[in-house]
Structures are given as structure tokens and as C-alpha cells.
Design a protein around this nucleic acid. Structure first.
Length: 144
RNA sequence: CCGACCGACCGAGGCAAUCGCGGGCACCAAGUGCGAAAGCCGGUGCGUGAGGAAAGUCCGGGCUUCACAGGACAAGGGUGCCGGGUAACGCCCGGUGAAGGUGACUUUAAGGAAAGUGCAACAGAAAAGAAAACCGCCCCAUUUGCUUCUCGAAGCGAAUGGAGCAAGGAUGAAAAGGCGAGGUAAGAGCUCACCGGCGGUAUGGAGACAUACCGGCCUUGUAAACCCCACCCGAAGCAACGUCGUGGAAGGCAACCGUGGUCCGCGGGCCUUAGGAGACGGCUUGAGCCUGAGGGCAACUUCAGGCCACAGAUAGAUGAUUGCAUUUAACAGAACCCGGCUUACCGGCCGUGUCGGAAAA
């Protein structure tokens, strides 16, 4: 199941106001478990989907830096998504930092923060293993 | 060869593999899916997907709605040498004047100061009408010192007072045209030559202007101070605007349902209107790009042929990992669209381009 983007300002504020959050060196993750039957403008939101929003501070970076940060976060999220429990609204905010962290750092920290918030599924190890296996397969292909 | 000047071009560094994203086309799926409606929600393949500044939002348009639908004036704002280009411009091209540079060349908010008003600090005697005099120059008068001799005169000074001057010094960003000669007690456009400025005439030029001659004898700077003159300008912006619009609002109800014995009434329901959320459109083919031939010094333009490869997202699509080669990368991300300007910037590359110097001939 693919995640939908969070769109409206009130949705973001709901997450910030009522969500559980965890903070790391580079980012803050807010997770809000949607109550059942929540509607947006008279249309029911399906209960088995994830919705996610990425934020980057406007202060230090220009539009290019902001885009880059969002892309890195989205890429990290894409790899972690199958392991996240459905029915949550998530907002991930990048902190003000001097230098943009690398993809590996972002991914590691995102994983830690999400597990601290207990939104990762129980049998997540298998997925991770499969991802690693994929990577190994890839590298083997290149060697040969 | 060295040092410059001018102009143009390129720029997410390239390639490959895997995973992933936006939108286009083709094909395949199409559901008791979600919605009141409009509409939204898949898979595979193929090709495609940020810039020279996308930026600042400083000008000029297109487009859209509103206003006026005629003209004049005023207010407010803008522009400001001349001619041309353009859809238009405060932009561009070509020229004129001025300033700078040995030069190639560069810069130029460049209308009017004789319509009027204001301002010109400090310094300075005096800073805007013709006045003023600190040092100074010159003449006269009085007093006095020295020298000379024919012994009461001459010469050279000094002090005080009076009259004249604006050459020199000094002040200043700027001191009332400049410089030389005549002139004079000393001086002064007082007179004259040349130069500058102003006015007039003639010639050349499309014009800004240029050149020549004549005249009187001269009038500071500032209009990125008010102002005057000429010309131009309706307002707001894609969150414009259009379509669909549950709820809520306003109006209506002959018929329907509930309440009721019946009517009125009330509630539901239905119809109409504008329309807040929201959805979709607007949204990319355009003053377009390329080639050739004319016109023009050029900006640009005319004609002919060819091309749709040249993004269209909507919380906002370009990323990640790995490998390769000698491989490092600035400023920076479309948001309705064009034409400019301005600002930021790693480097590279080009020109039978031009100038100065050196060397050689």
C-alpha cells in the first residue's frame, strides 16, 4: 500500500499537536495514529493507508537544499515503508544543520526513531534481511 | 611572445547497472471501489522531464475579471540629447555632446538655472546681484628717523589719518570669464588679440549638433531641492478567472411523506438563486525554434522550407546504491506565459576580432 501525502495545514497541525514524537540528531519524527472513521471534507479516509509529510527548514538552505533534503528523506522512507504499521499520519522534519547529512545517516536515524515510536512491525527483521539480500545480490552481479 | 579591450558560446560533469518518482502516447485491465455531483483511484511497454540566471519581482506586454464604455481639465505616478527597432518598454541598435584612457574602448538620471522660490556647512574680508577689503598695492596730509649736500631742500624709510584699487597672497568644492599686451599713481573688459561662454546670421545634416562670420562685453553651482516644459499612464492579479458545488444562507412549494377528523401551521422533502470549503479546468504551440535567400552599418525585418525534441508539478515530480575512466563543480530549482533589466557564479572554449609593448624582418 502506497502512502499518500499529507496536504492541508490543519492535518499538519493535528499531527504536531497530538502526535507522539522522537528526536534525533538530524530530524524529528511525529507519528499520529488516526482514529477510525476520520473524514476529510465528507470523504472517509481509508484506514489501512499511511500518510506522510516531509519538512525542511527554510532558514538555512535555499530551494535547492530543501529539495535535496526532502528527496533524501523520501528515499529513506521508501525503504522503510513496508515495515511501518498502517493507519498513521507521519511528519518528518529535518532540523537546522550546517551541512546536509548523507543518505546513510538519514536512513539509520529514521529507522532508530521509528522503532523508538513502536510503529515498526513485529516481523520486520525478515524485510530488512530481504533488502540486504537484494543488495548482496546486486553487488555480486557487479563483481561477476 | 607579453599585457589589455570587445563580443559570442557552453555549464544539475559523463557513461553503465538496479530500485524509485512526475506527466505524455500506445496497449491491457476495468471494480457490488470512494464521492451529492464534478471527478478521483491501476498494470505493461516506449520515448520524455529545471536555468543561464529558473533568482530579485525592478520595468514592459499577453491573458482574465471589474470599472469606464465620448471628450476636456485637475490630482497622482513615470519618462527626459537625437534618429531608428519593437507588441511594448524605463529595453536594444546607430549617432551627437561631455568625461576618462597612450590606445582598442569605456562611462554617461544628458530637457529647462535668462519663469520664479529655496539652499550653498566649515573656513573666509566677501557665497549671490554689483557688494565687501584681512594681508597687500598706490596716492595725499601730518609727525618723525637716517643719508647727502649748494643748509633747506632732495632721497630712502617708519607711524597715524584720508582717498583709490582688486593685480598678488590667504580661505574654500566654487571668489564674478581665462591668458597675454596696452594702459595706469596703482589697478580694473578700461582698451585690444586669441580662447571660452551667450545671442544672431549663413552653410551642412532627417535631427541632436557641427563649422564659419558678426555682435554686445558676460549672467556661480545645485532641478538623484521645490518647480517649469514636453510626452505617457483605468484597477487588480492565475490564491486572476471558468465549470461542478454536499453542508450552511435566502426565496418558493400546485403535487409527496409525517403530525392531524379537516384546514392553517410546523417538520421532512423537493425546486430556484448566489456561492464559502473542496475537485477539475486555466496549464502550455509560442510576439516559438532551425535552415536558406533578400533589405538594413546595426537593433531588426520580409519571404520560402522544415520541426513539434524543447517540463507542466499542485505540500509540489530529477533521487539512492554500486561500478568505470585522469575527473573536481560555483551560483542555484520551473509554479500562467513571454520581452528586458539587475544581482549571484566554478570553470572552459572560440574569434582570418581589435589595441599597446617587445622581438624579428
Amino acid at each position: 500500500m502506497k502512502a499518500l501525502p499529507l496536504r492541508f495545514n490543519y492535518e499538519f497541525s493535528r499531527v504536531y499537536r497530538r502526535a507522539a514524537f522522537a528526536t534525533g540528531r538530524y530530524m524529528t519524527v511525529h507519528v499520529f495514529h488516526r482514529p477510525k472513521g476520520l473524514k476529510h471534507n465528507n470523504t472517509r479516509i481509508p484506514e489501512d493507508i499511511l500518510r506522510v509529510g516531509f519538512c525542511a527548514s527554510k532558514k538555512q538552505m535555499g530551494a535547492v537544499g530543501r529539495n535535496k533534503a526532502r528527496r533524501l528523506m523520501r528515499e529513506a522512507y521508501r525503504h522503510l515503508e513496508p515495515r511501518i504499521r498502517e493507519g498513521n499520519d507521519i511528519v518528518i522534519t529535518l532540523k537546522c544543520v550546517d551541512e546536509l547529512p548523507s543518505y546513510a545517516e538519514i536512513r539509520r536515524e529514521m529507522e532508530v526513531l521509528l522503532s523508538r515510536l513502536k510503529v515498526l512491525k513485529a516481523g520486520a527483521c525478515d524485510d530488512e534481511k530481504s533488502v540486504d539480500q537484494d543488495r548482496e545480490v546486486l553487488s555480486e552481479e557487479h563483481i561477476t
